[in-house]
C-alpha cells in the first residue's frame, strides 16, 4: 500500500487524477487555472492603483491562493513524508543527451531526484542558473498572461472544452518549448 502511494505513478493514473482536480474545482464553481494567481499577487501588492489590469477584487481569488498553498503542502507531503524510492526514471537517450551538455542524470547529485543540481542547487550557482530562474520565470509570467492561461487553463481545461483558442495556445507552448530545448538551452548550459 505504502509503495503504491509513494509511486512513481503510472501516467494514466496521474492523468485521471489531474482531470479529477479540474472536476472538483468545477463542482465548487471554479475554473482550474494556476497562473491567475500571479496576477492576484500583483493586485495584492497594489499594482491596481496604477494599472487597470490589476484593479480587480482579489478577495474573489482567495480560493485559488488557498489551492496554491495546498499544492505547496502536497509537494512537501509527497517528497518528504511519502518519498519515492527512486529518482525520476527518464529514458536512456535523454540521459545521454543531457550528459553531453553537462547535466547529470536524476539522483546523481544531492537534491537532484526531480530537478538538476546544475540549474537548481544553490551550491552550484552560475550564470546559467541565474538566466534560468530570472529569464525563465519572467517568460512564464508574461507569456501565460498574454496567452490568457497556462498548462492547467489551456492544455487541460481548454482542450477538455474543445476550444480552438486553447489549441492555438498549446501549439504556441510547443513552438517555444521545442525552440528552447533543442536550440537555446544547450547554449545557456554552456555559460558558467
Amino acid at each position: 500500500m505504502l509503495e503504491t502511494i509513494s509511486g512513481p505513478w503510472h501516467w494514466s493514473v496521474s492523468g485521471i487524477a489531474i482531470a479529477a482536480v479540474m472536476f472538483m474545482l468545477l463542482y465548487a464553481g471554479k475554473e482550474f487555472g494556476v497562473s491567475s494567481n500571479l496576477r492576484t499577487a500583483c493586485s495584492i501588492a497594489g499594482a491596481g492603483r496604477k494599472y487597470k489590469f490589476f484593479d480587480i477584487d482579489w478577495r474573489a481569488q482567495q480560493w485559488n491562493l488557498l489551492f496554491v498553498g495546498g499544492s505547496i503542502f502536497g509537494g512537501f507531503l509527497a517528497f518528504y513524508v511519502f518519498p519515492s524510492a527512486e529518482p525520476v526514471q527518464i529514458s536512456a537517450e535523454t540521459i545521454d543527451y543531457l550528459r553531453s551538455v553537462g547535466v547529470s542524470a536524476p539522483g546523481e547529485q544531492a537534491g537532484s531526484s526531480y530537478v538538476p543540481a546544475e540549474l537548481f542547487a544553490l551550491s552550484e550557482f552560475s550564470l546559467s542558473t541565474l538566466i534560468t530562474v530570472v529569464v525563465g520565470g519572467f517568460l512564464i509570467g508574461f507569456g501565460a498572461r498574454w496567452a490568457g492561461g497556462c498548462t492547467s487553463g489551456h492544455a487541460i481545461s481548454g482542450l477538455s472544452n474543445l476550444q480552438l483558442p486553447s489549441l492555438i495556445a498549446v501549439i504556441g507552448f510547443f513552438i517555444g518549448g521545442l525552440a528552447m530545448s533543442w536550440f537555446i538551452l544547450p547554449l545557456i548550459l554552456q555559460l558558467q
Partner: peptide, 29 residues
Amino acid sequence: YLFGGILFGLGWALTGACPGPMFVLLGQG
C-alpha cells in the same frame, strides 16, 4: 494565444516548470 504561448513555452522548457509545478517544487524544498 500564439505569441503568448510561444513565450510561455520558452519559459516552461527552460525552467522545466509551469505555474502549478513551481509551487509544488517549493514544497519539495
